[in-house]
Write a protein that binds this DNA or RNA. Structure first.
Length: 377
RNA sequence: GGGUAGGUGGCCGAGUGGUUAAAGGCGGCAGACUGUAAAUCUGCUCACGUAAGUGUACGAAGGUUCGAAUCCUUCCCUGCCCA
């Protein structure tokens, strides 16, 4: 169930509450990515301390390892990973793109060669939904094809049509099998495709809306397109999605991008950026990202940012830089923790601003500072 | 004292007459990363110069050669073995 609690006075931003089997999610929300049943470097207690409300898991990766026989015997992803809050699982559609050298797309589905050992494996709408049912996620994504960027219009149109046909098959499988998540019903989100073509985005959105799903995602972005194309895809899709259903921008984004997309009416985000970039030594700050490994922080006794989490604030930049250079694992963990905290705090601030009706001002102020100091950081 | 193996750019380590300012790794400096095949990948790293280029450089000094990190002589230093 999704409830719209408030709308911003200055933008199309929405404040919402999404109730799923394992709990309640306040939107707008950022969902940390835990592809293989783990948000890299972090303990579930860390995620709780960060206030993470919902995390991701991945159909493709979890199906390869540990595999669904094992997963089924062990009671599903929540029990297996000891995380009893909401989980959203991606359908594996993105891996069709990211592992595209290893797969073959047909009407039936996608045949992969496992990136682990080359074993052939089939992913289809029915198989993806079956896997996600076994995982028992709160929200399952319909199986889609994520076309590369750039795609010519013919390819994009055919791909979108395939995604729609696959979507119908997913929906039929769900109606027949009625998958559960814990004690509740599993929800299902469709994924709008259409590449960089406004009319195709509209067509895709309308075809999926006709399926009356629980929510709608915008996909086919974060595949190497310029930022302007990314924003345009969101702009082109949002107006055709129902007000009363949650909207999810898949795989995005940077802090300013997320604020811009919230202003366009997006409610949910996921992105590997905060955690991956953390493992690569980059820290999100109110003044834009900084490379903690840089010599500039050698003697910097300040915390990572003014607003960082108390458990990280006790450490100086100089110390964390040292940990990084010494290849200490604590560096990866502290930076991952901090970056997720930064993202989750940003969402909380956004929710407060929407409730106050001043999201537009908040967004402008944040982005101005974030970008301005990039030049003279 | 005798024998033996060596001394190469911040460190380790290739290279045994020209295509060598000298492989590769480490270290250092910077950058990329957007539904995670990512604790990964990329660039730069002798000096001066934007560059072409110039100058220095393979323990030291001399020599052979058109040309030497590479060959010869002497010296210095280090590891190992024997006394």
């Amino acid at each position: 169930m999704f409830e719209l609690l408030a709308k911003d006075g200055q933008t199309k931003a929405r404040l919402g509450r999404l109730t799923v089997a394992h709990g309640v999610v306040q939107t707008p929300i950022f969902m940390p990515v835990g592809t293989q049943g783990s948000v890299k470097t972090l303990h579930p207690d860390d995620l709780e301390n960060l206030g993470a409300q919902i995390i991701l898991g991945n159909t493709y990766h979890l199906n390869l390892r540990p595999g669904m026989d094992t997963m089924g015997k062990l009671g599903g992803l929540h029990k297996f990973t000891s995380w009893d809050k909401p989980i959203l699982t991606d359908s594996g559609g993105f891996q069709v793109w990211s592992l595209s050298k290893l797969n073959k797309i047909t009407e039936e589905g996608v045949e992969f060669a496992s990136h682990l050992d080359g074993t052939r494996m089939m992913l289809s709408p029915e198989i993806s939904m079956q896997i996600q049912a076994t995982l028992g996620s709160d929200i399952a994504m319909l199986f889609d094809e994520c076309p590369p960027y750039p795609s010519d219009k013919d390819y994009a149109a055919n791909s979108l049509a395939l995604t729609t046909r696959w979507g119908i098959r997913c929906k039929e499988w769900v109606e027949k099998n009625k998958p559960r998540s814990g004690d509740g019903r599993q929800m299902h989100f469709g994924i709008v495709q259409g590449s960089s073509y406004a009319d195709l985005r509209e067509q895709s959105a309308k075809e999926l809306v006709a399926l009356d799903l629980d929510g709608y995602a915008i996909g086919g972005i974060s595949v190497g397109e310029p930022e302007i194309e990314m924003m345009r895809a969101i702009e082109n899709a949002c107006p055709h999605l129902p007000e009363e259903k949650p909207r999810y921008a898949m795989g995005l984004g940077t802090p300013p991008q997320m604020l811009e997309m919230i202003a366009l009416g997006v409610d949910m985000f996921d992105c590997v950026m905060p955690t991956r970039i953390a493992r690569h030594g980059v820290v999100f700050t109110e003044d834009g990202p900084i490379h903690i490994k840089n010599k500039a922080y050698e003697l910097d006794e300040r915390p990572l940012t003014e607003g960082t989490h108390p458990s990280v604030a006790r450490f100086s930049r100089a110390y964390i830089r040292h940990l990084w250079r010494a290849k200490e694992m604590l560096a990866l963990r502290l930076l991952s923790f901090h970056n997720l905290h930064f993202y989750l705090q940003l969402m909380e601030q956004a929710r407060e601003a929407i409730a106050a009706g001043t999201f537009g001002d908040f967004k402008e102020k944040f982005i101005t500072r974030y970008n301005k100091n990039q030049k003279n950081k």
